[in-house]
Amino acid sequence: MAILKKKTKVSDEIPSSSMADIAFLLLIFFLVTTVFPKDQGLQIVLPEAQEEVEVSQRNILHINVGTDGLVRYRRGDSENEFTVRPPEMEDIWRMEVAQNENLIAGVRTHPEAQHRYMVQVLDALQMAGAQRISLQMGEG
């Protein structure tokens, strides 16, 4: 009886030299498909319903945003109105709040004004550290 001997020399181990290649392939796939979430912006807190409070005109800075992107602002107890560009509001707010720390920013935007103009004003106010900001829509 002939002896049946296994002649094959095939290794019975999983080849580990290609493991790195497989891992890197998967790695590159995930690197390419990953989308980092873009959850950022300017945060504000809206007033809750029935939370309306009377504010003395003395403590309001009226900020009107027009369709031309310019800002007209005046103090509540004053008749003088000034026209500035949105980025200038940052220094103005710092100056005004230094005189009256209870100041509230009443931002009134024209219905047809572009959203970006309101964002620019809000940006300037937040850069100046304004906390109390009220957003309203002006009359058309």
């Binding site: 950022q40 912006g41 945060q43 319903a49 945003v65 219905p111 572009q114 829509m137 058309g140």
Partner: peptide, 29 residues
């Protein structure tokens, strides 16, 4: 919101958010 959108749409949405009870809004920028 699109930078060019008229503010009345933004105001309308904010009124709706208020009506829905939510108070934290972030203008994505």
């Amino acid at each position: 919101a699109d930078a060019r959108a008229p503010y009345r749409f933004i105001d309308g949405v904010m009124e709706e958010i208020k009506a829905g009870g939510a108070i934290y809004v972030v203008f994505a920028t």
